[in-house]
Design a protein around this nucleic acid. Sequence first.
DNA 1: ACCTGAACACCGTTCAAGT
DNA 2: ACCTGAACACCGTTCAAGT
Lengths: 224, 224
Amino acid sequence: MPGSMGVMAVSRTPRTPRRLRRPPDRYHHGDLRRALLEEAARTIQHEGVDGLTLRAVGERLGVSRTALYRHFTDKSALLSAVARQGFGMLRLALTDAWEKGGRGRPGFDAMGLAYVRFAVGNPAYYRVMFGGFLARPAPDPDLSQEAAAAFQVLVDAIVAQQKAGLVREDDDPLQLARLIWAMVHGIAMLAIDGHLQHEGADAESLSAFANVRIRTGITGSEVI
Amino acid sequence: MPGSMGVMAVSRTPRTPRRLRRPPDRYHHGDLRRALLEEAARTIQHEGVDGLTLRAVGERLGVSRTALYRHFTDKSALLSAVARQGFGMLRLALTDAWEKGGRGRPGFDAMGLAYVRFAVGNPAYYRVMFGGFLARPAPDPDLSQEAAAAFQVLVDAIVAQQKAGLVREDDDPLQLARLIWAMVHGIAMLAIDGHLQHEGADAESLSAFANVRIRTGITGSEVI
DNA sequence: ACCTGAACACCGTTCAAGT
DNA sequence: ACCTGAACACCGTTCAAGT
């Protein structure tokens, strides 16, 4: 018979009861957790982080404003889940740019550009990820892991370039990665906060300029 | 008689009535505006930006929670004033480092370090200045001017180095300034948000590393 | 001119109770 | 297990009224 368990109890640990089918007695909504996450992300993108209220999210989902607490411990846990999703998107964008660019210098330049473009294109996500809304160190290990994975893409690209002689081999790749990260992060934040709105000061051209200058430095002719 | 006006009305424009002495009929507090600003700054430093409530500020000053509205249009105007003060402090720190360092390469390195140190040492101020709490472009012209003045210190230092042959002369000094700004801003933000907490990843050493690498670039031996 | 006090329209979160 | 509804302890802001 389908779903019947064996008669003999073969030393199953009672700590992890497997749920072979999802319970049919879902009360009202069903996959509320996913719905809450999607609605939160949508709201943040349209109204900004400050515009996110649990009451409105619940109302828009046709659910009580306290239903959320069955799926997230509190509001910051919801934001944390959004941030985690954002880091996943960012990682994919970086990997894509690096690989499609040929895993060399053009790929690395494309990666820097992709980073800034992600932030400018998804300012709400980026603000949740880096806007200081989340406690540090992140209480959510899933979030920490996703953020670390995104950073690792950058580290790997630097190590690859060091092996290819494209980047100085006598520098710590982690420190190099942090420097590049700080640079694109700075450009992204300035752009999102509206500080790059003068003529020729857009995020795109500053990114391109950064790609060139981080390679060769800013030192002038008098110094060798 | 002290304070008496001249008898002849010599074409005084009525638009700007001079107040020769401050009015003696101050109601309860006196210099409430300054007190509010100081208390707000103190609160933000101790409790963070989110910990700032107008009610608590008023209570701590022994004043109604709505008294503030006689001196600031709303809460964001108060934050704006704090940010303006922060930009003034930052500008002084930058100028000081640049001049004491000898207006050359050591001075410029010291300036970068001073920038990051200001942010790390005054995270609350820095967050108000750059945390996305303020509307952009800033409605407060005083704030915009103070921020521009701080940026100008950086621009001037770059122009001076270009003239001295210390920095490439064929690059737009404004674009170079934006790049340096983005770099120190990125380091500062990562540090404040707790992303530089692994071993050897502190803001100080990353700043020092940035100073070296932004001069000479990250290019490896295989590429000339 | 400057400040008060009550009121308004919001929040996030808790908790006993329902199905 | 999952959700509700009332309640609690907060917010920023407005506005008529006081001195």
